[in-house]
Simulated assay, not measured.
Amino acid sequence: MKKALKGFSEYDRFGPWIDEVKRMDDVPRLYRSYPIDFSVERLVLKVPRDITHRNATPEMDLYDHLIMVGRDRLTVLSRRNGRSLRAETHATTSDKARGYDVVEIQFADIVAIRNSLNLLDGRLTVSTSEGTPVKVSYNGSAVNVMRTLVSELRDVACAKPASPVGEALLAAGSPLARPAVEPEHGPVDTFLASAFLEAHGANPRLSAWAAHGRRRLTPDATGMQATIQRMRHALSPMTLHGALFAADEAAMEVFGRHSWLIRGRAAIYSTSHLVIPFGAPDRLDLEPHPLYPDVTVATLGAGKWKEELPVPRGSVAEHLLREAASKI
């Protein structure tokens, strides 16, 4: 977080970093019509537009979002025509005169939080059971600030007791729980193991449950379709990337890449951190992947929201999820 410089204009302070806002003078001018009680808000962040300082001008509205974690809800103010809040997200308040939209999410309605980073392309997604997520894009230089935000949201989203699906996951995963990644968890991408250890350092209650490394996939097809698929995969192979499943008593966390299944030969350096409160899911289903016989797709759902988690067939992760599904 870059500390605001008193006496400097919004334009002078502008950069790719995400700043914490602690007083009204530091609120971007676009959002100053919105009433903010700093004695109530736990955390207020302003997220800049994805432009360089040389392309900015003092007349521009320079911040795409103002994010507020309050007493009982998350509030996101978004610059109209800003690229980060997706078009499918419906604002709860829309005032054309002021140039920004307002989305409010009660903490009790949050069912998943995902923070991903692909090079400098950061993406925070907060999902609810209504199925319409809030998505905020950010510059990867601000990843540490967003991790703080994820931690705050995790704390407030995990107040509900575990659902039957959450209890089944806890029952299946608890026998595997260890404070460090061990061989019985399965092969693991060392980068994801490091991500888990960093998270464990911030939350010592977090335990590793299961892990798997990346693997190249072969499609299952017959006849002419098989020939076409083999040619396509020879040119651009499909890889199921590694993941590490972890949890404490409040939530399951999955460390992985920005996408589970990726075509091509390029090296992948992305990261993804998915948090699912145990009080959220209302279903867990496992099905074989329609094209790749070595992949089982576990689908966790809560209302209209769902997350598909493809895992290797026969892996510790698959056994964990299948065991949980059998207990529901």
Rank of each mutant, 00 (worst) to 15 (best):
R205V: 00
T271E: 14
A180R: 14
F255S: 05
A247Y: 00
M224A: 11
A157P: 02
L217A: 06
G186K: 09
V188M: 09
S163C: 03
A280T: 00
A162M: 10
S174Y: 03
A172D: 05
R257K: 12
A199L: 04
H212Q: 11
A267N: 08
H241R: 12
P281G: 04
D220K: 09
D282S: 13
E167Q: 15
A211I: 08
S163P: 02
R154I: 00
G173M: 03
H241M: 06
R178A: 12
M238V: 05
L176E: 04
V275M: 05
T239F: 10
H212Y: 15
I262L: 15
A251R: 01
L286V: 09
R265H: 11
D189F: 14
D189N: 15
A171D: 10
H258T: 15
L153Q: 03
M238L: 02
T190P: 13
H289A: 03
L240A: 08
G223I: 08
T227I: 06
R263N: 10
P187K: 13
M231G: 05
V181L: 15
Q225A: 08
V156N: 02
P204G: 07
A251E: 08
R257V: 03
L170V: 11
A195I: 07
P277W: 00
R205I: 01
A267P: 02
V181C: 12
R215T: 13
A171T: 11
I262D: 10
R257E: 03
A251F: 02
H258M: 15
R205Y: 00
A195M: 14
A172T: 04
D285F: 13
S194F: 12
S194A: 15
P187S: 14
Q229T: 07
S272D: 12
S259R: 15
F191D: 15
L240G: 07
L274D: 04
F255H: 13
E167T: 12
L176P: 01
S259H: 14
F245M: 01
R283C: 08
L284W: 03
C158Y: 00
L169F: 06
V165S: 00
Y269D: 13
F245N: 03
A243P: 01
V188G: 08
A251G: 00
A157T: 05
F255G: 09
C158H: 00
A247I: 00
L286A: 12
A172E: 06
R230L: 07
F196I: 07
Y292D: 02
I262V: 15
Q229A: 11
D220N: 11
G264T: 11
P161N: 07
A177Q: 09
R257D: 06
E167W: 08
H241S: 01
L197E: 13
L284V: 05
G279L: 03
E167Y: 05
E253T: 10
P293R: 12
G201V: 03
S194H: 14
R178S: 12
G213D: 12
D282Q: 07
F255I: 10
R178H: 12
A247G: 04
R230M: 08
